[in-house]
Structure formats: C-alpha cells, structure tokens
C-alpha cells in the first residue's frame, strides 16, 4: 500500500473546493424562489426551471445547438471515416503529413479559425450564417472523428476484412458488414465526443453568429451580460444533469473510457 503525502491530500482538497464549490453554488442558486442571484437561496422553488424551459430565445438556441451538433457530427463522421480508413488501411501513414493535417485544427486557436471562416465564408463568399456555423463545427469535429475511429481501426484485426474479401465480399460489402460493425463502439464514442464538443463550443459559435443561428452557450452568454436573474443558473443545472446522463449512457453502451484510453495509448506508441 502506498501512503499519500499530506500535501497531496491538501492540494486535492483545495482543487476540489475550487472546482466543485462554484458549481454547487450555481446549482443552489437555481433553486431559489427569489428574483436575483443570491446565496443561500431565498426560499426553494422550481420556478426558474419552469422559466428556463419556456423561455423562447433559449429554446430556439437549443434547437440551433442540437441541429448544428447533430449535422456537424454526421458530416464529420462522413468525412472522417474515409480519412481514417485510408490512414489505417490504405497506403498513407497515420503519423505522416496527412495524419498531422487532420489533427491540426485542435491546435489552431478556435477564435482564429472562427474569424478566418467568418471572413472567407460569410464576408467573401456570402455563405449563410448557418452554413458557416455548420462548416466551422464540422472542421472542429473532424479531428475527433478521424482520431477516435482511427484508433478503433488500428485496434481491429485486419484479417477480419481479408476473411470477408476471401468469402466473396467486395470492398463496400466488407466495409458495411464487417468493418463498420467491428468498429461500432469507436464510431459511437466519436459521435458522443463530437456532439458534446460541438454543443459546448463558444468561440466558433460566437464568431459565426447571425440571425437565427445563436447557439445555446452564446445565448446564455448574451443573457448574463444584461440580466441578473437566476435563469442561466437553472439552465446550467439542467445541462449538468444532461452531461451526467450522457456520460452514464455512453459508458454503458460503448465502453467510452476504454475507447478513449486506447486512443491515448495509440498516440504514445512509438
């Protein structure tokens, strides 16, 4: 058994307090019966939750967020899977130039990416705000799609595909009937990761903003700039619940952490 140094325990306690403390505070505030943000809450009620769930701008923003997250994920997977396939099954080298290219957006500051897309797509080419937003999110999600599905592909036994070909399946039948089912958990993990990443994104959504394309985080940001009511606290609490549910469901369905751990192991392989 290893004994922890008392300082480690103390640092952990401080870190936890700073991480969890404010979150607990927000959750507490959300249950207030009063009209302003104050802690401890003035009486207990669910009125701000009811308010949040019927507040038009937020509902519309939620619709936009979900639409962009789902469409962006589908597009990122549709583009990312072929890339992952050619990196892992074709001639291209995963750690070569192309492999790096598809992980690049991760290191480019999203504000820079967002501003560049805003300038090119919306200003120069007059693409609609929604089109630009969707393009931005797709570019943002692509590296996740390529990496996570790629890790699954690298893990899968290549002879499964050879076996399918030998049994008479062409390239497409092999992909749909063998490759895809085998890397299913990886595709599911990539989807969840993409959905969450897109849903949480602020910088891109902020810059590619236009009439009717405000996402939920941006709408919340706008709201707290002008109002001091606990509405956003209630939304935050609902989002927390959603995050926990998503995590639990994914863990059950696909062994999410397992896939991510494998991806991590893959990254450090020489």
């Amino acid at each position: 058994m290893t004994r922890r140094h008392p300082v480690v325990g103390a640092v952990a306690a401080v870190a936890l307090t700073f991480l969890l403390g404010p979150i607990l505070l927000v959750v507490g505030v959300a249950f207030t019966a009063g009209d302003t943000i104050e802690f401890p809450p003035r009486g207990l009620s669910l009125r701000w939750f009811a308010q949040a769930l019927s507040y038009g701008p937020f509902l519309e923003a939620l619709r936009t967020s979900l639409l962009v997250a789902v469409a962006g994920t589908v597009l990122a997977l549709a583009l990312g899977l072929p890339v992952a396939l050619s990196l892992n099954r074709g001639g291209a080298r995963p750690r070569g130039a192309i492999g790096t290219l598809f992980t690049l957006p991760v290191v480019v500051p999203e504000l820079v990416l967002g501003y560049a897309l805003f300038q090119t797509l919306m200003v120069t080419f007059r693409v609609s705000a929604f089109g630009a937003l969707l393009a931005g999110h797709t570019v943002l999600l692509l590296p996740y799609a390529v990496r996570v599905t790629g890790a699954s592909l690298a893990q899968a036994d290549r002879s499964l595909e050879e076996a399918a070909r030998g049994l008479g399946a062409g390239g497409w039948a092999t992909f749909t009937r063998v490759t895809l089912p085998v890397i299913g958990p990886g595709v599911a993990a990539a989807s969840v990761l993409s959905l969450v990443t897109s849903f949480n994104n602020v910088p891109l959504s902020l810059l590619l903003n236009g009439p009717g394309t405000t996402t939920l985080p941006v709408a919340m940001l706008h709201h707290v700039e002008f109002a001091f009511d606990p509405l956003v606290a209630a939304v935050c609490t609902l989002l927390l619940v959603l995050a926990v549910v998503v995590m639990l469901v994914t863990e059950r369905l696909a062994g999410f952490t397992d896939v991510l751990a494998r991806q991590e192991a893959d990254r450090w392989r020489p």
Binding site: D157, S159, L160, E162, A163, A164, R165, G166, L167, G168, A169, G170, V178, P181, V182, G184
Partner: peptide, 19 residues
Amino acid sequence: PPERRDIGMVFQSYALFPH
C-alpha cells in the same frame, strides 16, 4: 481481387466475425 478467386482460407488467428 480476393473475392473473385474462389479460395477459402483459415487464418492463423481464425478471424471469426465477432458480431
């Protein structure tokens, strides 16, 4: 291509489809 050769193969790792 392999799918047009009419050859059956038993792989060293068996390569049975897990799904």
